[in-house]
Design a protein around this nucleic acid. Sequence first.
DNA 1: AGCTAAATATCGAAA
DNA 2: TTTCGATGTTTAGCT
Lengths: 231, 231
Amino acid sequence: MRIVIADCSVDYSGRLTAHLPLARRVLMVKADGSVLVHSDGGSYKPLNWMSPPCRLTEAEPDEAQAQAGVTGVWTVQNTKTDDRLVVSLHEVLSDTSTELGVDPGLVKDGVEAHLQKLLAEQITLLGDGHTLVRREYPTAIGPVDILAKSAGGASVAVEIKRRGDIDGVEQLTRYLELLNRDPLLAPVDGVFAAQEIKPQARVLATDRGIRCVVLDYDAMRGIDDVDSRLF
Amino acid sequence: MRIVIADCSVDYSGRLTAHLPLARRVLMVKADGSVLVHSDGGSYKPLNWMSPPCRLTEAEPDEAQAQAGVTGVWTVQNTKTDDRLVVSLHEVLSDTSTELGVDPGLVKDGVEAHLQKLLAEQITLLGDGHTLVRREYPTAIGPVDILAKSAGGASVAVEIKRRGDIDGVEQLTRYLELLNRDPLLAPVDGVFAAQEIKPQARVLATDRGIRCVVLDYDAMRGIDDVDSRLF
DNA sequence: AGCTAAATATCGAAA
DNA sequence: TTTCGATGTTTAGCT
C-alpha cells in the first residue's frame, strides 16, 4: 500500500469522462495496482478511482505540462477495458509505502438470507396454522422466497426484503400472476414481509390484495436463540 | 485528513454486525469525523467504515484489552442512528495528519441523457424509415424517452436504459397502456433500447410484444463524431 | 424533506 | 463463467 498526499488534477475516461480540478488530495495505490483518489469529505466512495485489473505507470511531464507546474504524471490503465485514469501531480507533500499483507476478510451477520431462514423456521408469524412448503420455490422468472400454506389450505407466496420498497411489491405481483396460472397451486395469496415497509409500497400492496407483514429481526433472532438452547 | 497505519481489529454494529480480525490496515479519518478501514486489495470500497455524521472518540484500553495487546480503542458513533464502529488498535506504525481543504468536486460527462440524445439523432437505428416525433414525450405518468413513427406510420414509444432490466420493461408497459388509449396515436408499438439487456427483461418484453434493441454506445458516439466533423 | 432512479456501482452466490 | 439479487449501498434528480 502506497499513500501519496499531493496537489493534483485527475482525468478519467471510460464509460464516461470525468475531470477533477487541481486540489490537495490523498492518493492510495493498492498492491494490485488499483488507485483511489480521496478528498477530505464525502462518503467512503473516492472522488475517482481505477479498479483492478490495472497497471500504474509513472512518467515525467512533457514541456507544456511542466510549464503548468506538473511534476509527474500517473497513467492507470485497466488491462481488460480501455478505462484510463490520468493523475497530474503538482506538489507532492508525502509519499510513503507500507506492506500490509493479505486481509483475513470481513465476517458478516444479519442479512436477508438470515431473515428468510428465520421466517421459514417461524412460519406461523404469517398467521396461526401456516405451514412451510419450501424456501426458494422455483418459477420461470426466478425463485419465490417462501411458499407456504395457510390454515385453510390456500397457497401463500412470500417475498422477503430488508427494506420493503415498491420494487419488491412489483416482484411479488409478477410471481403471483405466474403462480396463479398453476391449477395445482391457485389461488395463491401474497405476503410482503420486510423489516421496514415504505408507505407507498404498503399502499400498492394493499391495493393489489397483498398482505404486509413487518418482521422484527431482533425478536426473531431471539426466538431462534431460545430454540437453540432448548434443543 | 488523518491517516493511520496500524494492526487492528474492527467491530461494526448497526444494520448488521460485522467483525474484522486482527490485521495490518490503513485507517483514514476525514475532516467530518468519518472513518474508512482499507486493506491492500479489493475495490474502492473499504472493508468497513462509518459515514458522517459521526464522532470519533479515542480511549485507553481496559485491563483485559491491554492484556490482549490493545494500545488504544477508537469508537466511531453515528450521531443520528445507533450505528457504531469500534477499532481496537494494537501496534501503530504511522499516524499522520494533513490539511487538504475543500475539494472543488467532480465534473462528469456522458451518461443516459447522452444515449437518448444520440438515439434521437440516429433514430433509424430503430429500423429503416423511422422518424423522430419528439424526445421526452409527455404522458400523465411521466415522459416517454422517445416517441417515433415507423416507416408504416405507426407510433413507436421507446424506453432507453443503460442496463435493460425488468423495471424498464414494466415502465414501458405502463406508458404503452396509456398511449394506446389515445386514438390519435394508437396503435403504439414499444421498443426497449439499452446498452445491455438482461435475459429476464428480454423474455418479459418479448412476451408483451415489445421489441428489444441493443445500443452500441461507442458506435453511436463514433457516428456522432463523424456528423460533428461533417457539419 | 421525501421519494425514485442511476451508478465507472461492488459483492457474493447460484446456475 | 455468466447471471442475478442484495447492499450498512451512495448519489443525483425531482416532487
